[in-house]
Design a protein around this nucleic acid. Structure first.
Lengths: 228, 228
DNA sequence: TAGATTGTTAATCGATTAACAATC
DNA sequence: TAGATTGTTAATCGATTAACAATC
C-alpha cells in the first residue's frame, strides 16, 4: 500500500522525535510544531516535516501536530506498539550489562533470555533474573518467539553466532563484536563497533592537534605527554 | 599544511581499512589493491582510493599499496601511534563491561580509571584491576592526562557528567546514555544510543511485515504471536 | 609494449534545505 | 482577513561512483 522507501537516517530521527514527544507529554503540551521538534535536536523544521510526511499527513496546516496522536503514529511506525522479544548471545560482562540495561524496559523491548557455551554460566541467571541457556538450545527455544538477537561474544565467534540466529529465524541482529557479519537477504545486522567509535574519536583528536597548531586553547593530553 | 576536510563516514572507513590490513599482515601479503580492500568490506574501489587520496599519495600506479606502509600511514592518520588514555564515568554494569573490554587493549587505547559517585564503589577496582575514584576527584586526577571520557551513567546524569569531563579538559567523549549532551565548540561527543539502535531494528521488522504481506518466507515472531 | 592500478575529474546519486502554495 | 504552519516542489549540497589519463 504505502511504499516507504526511507533511509536509515530518517528512521533514527523518527526515534528521536518520539523521545522528544515523550518528554513533552509530562508537561501536558497539546500541540507541537515542526520547528519546536527541530530546535530540540538541532535539525531544520523542513527535515522534520519531510520525515513525517513520508509516512502520512499527521499535522494540521497552520496549527501543528497533536502530541498524543503523533506519538501514537510514531510508535506504530517504529513497531513499538508490539513488545519485541530479545535474546542476548554471550553472557560475559557486556551481555550481563545489556541484559539489565534499564533503557530497554520502556518502549516495548524485553530481554527474554541469554545464551552462552560456557557450562559454568549455563543454568544460572542474571542479577535481573533472566535465565542463561546453552547456545545449542537457541533454535528449539527461540524459533518463532524471538524478534531480535544481540551478539556480545568475541570477534572470532561472532559470525558463527549470527549464523545460529539466522537459522533460528531471527531476522534482526545487533552486533557488538568488532566485525561485519554477513547475513542473508531479508535479514538485518546492525553493528555497534566500540573499537571503531573510539578510533573515530582518536582521529578527531589528531585533527585537533594539527588544526590548533599555533594557539591551543586547551593543550591535548597526548600532545602534552609527548612534549613533557 | 594539509587541509583535511573529511567526513565522519570517511573516518570510519579508514578504521575498517586498517582493520583489514591488520588481518592481512599475518598472511605476509606485501601489496594490496584498492579493489581487494573494497571487496573485503563491500565498498567500491573508487571509494577506497578517494578516501586514501584525501590524505596523500600512498599507492603506486599500476602496482597498488604496500601493506606495511599503508598500515603505518593509517595508524598515524587515526592517531593510533599514540596511546590514548581513557576514563569511564559510571561504574555500573556497562562501565565494568567497557573497562574490561578486550577490544580496547589493542590499537593504542588504555582505560586508566573509572569514576562514580556511589561510596560503595569508590575505592574498589574492576576485576581487571582498574581503580574506581570519586567523580569529585576527576578534575584533579585527570587534568592534562586523559584524552577520552566514556559516559556510562543514567540518562538524567549524563549532561552533568559531560560538563565535568569538559571542565577537566577532556575533548573527546563517548556517551552511552540515551541523550544528546551539549558540548562546547572544539569538543566532541559521540553518542552510542542502544535504545535508538534497537528501535531502528524494530522499525526494520515492521517494514518487513508490511512489505512481505502476502508471501512471508519466514513469518515474523511478533506477527505470529499476534496472529496466534 | 601490454596489462594493471593509481589519483582525479566529471557525472550521478541521494539527502537536506529553502521557498511557497495550501490550509487552518 | 491576517498570521501561522503544514506538505511538497525545486534548488542546493555533499557523498559516491564511473571513467580515464597518468604511471608503473
Amino acid at each position: 500500500m504505502t511504499k516507504p522507501r526511507v533511509s536509515e537516517l530518517t528512521a533514527s530521527r523518527l526515534s528521536l522525535y518520539l523521545r522528544f514527544l515523550n518528554q513533552l507529554e509530562d508537561g501536558e503540551t497539546a500541540m507541537v510544531s515542526s520547528r519546536a521538534m527541530a530546535d530540540s535536536m538541532g535539525a531544520t523544521s523542513a527535515q522534520v516535516r519531510r520525515d513525517l510526511a513520508s509516512f502520512g499527513e499527521f499535522g494540521v496546516r497552520g496549527v501543528g501536530y497533536e502530541v498524543k496522536q503523533l506519538r501514537a503514529e510514531l510508535e506504530r511506525i517504529l513497531g513499538l506498539d508490539q513488545t519485541l522479544h530479545v535474546v542476548i548471545i554471550g553472557a560475559g560482562n557486556l551481555g550481563h550489562a545489556l541484559a539489565d540495561y534499564p533503557g530497554f524496559g520502556g518502549g516495548g523491548l524485553k530481554v527474554v533470555a541469554l545464551f552462552d557455551v560456557d557450562p559454568d554460566k549455563v543454568g544460572n541467571e542474571t542479577r535481573g533474573g533472566i535465565p542463561i541457556y546453552h547456545l545449542d538450545d537457541l533454535e528449539s527455544l527461540a524459533a518463532g518467539k524471538v524478534d531480535v538477537g544481540i551478539v556480545s561474544v568475541p570477534a572470532e565467534a561472532a559470525q558463527g553466532v549470527v549464523d545460529c540466529l539466522v537459522a533460528a529465524g531471527i531476522r534482526a541482529v545487533l552486533n557488538f563484536a568488532p566485525v561485519r557479519p554477513r547475513v542473508p537477504q531479508g535479514f538485518r545486522c546492525k553493528s555497534v563497533d566500540l573499537t571503531l567509535e573510539l578510533e573515530s574519536l582518536s582521529f578527531f583528536l589528531s585533527l585537533q592537534e594539527l588544526t590548533e597548531g599555533d594557539d591551543p586553547p586547551l593543550a591535548g593530553a597526548a600532545a602534552e605527554r609527548s612534549a613533557g
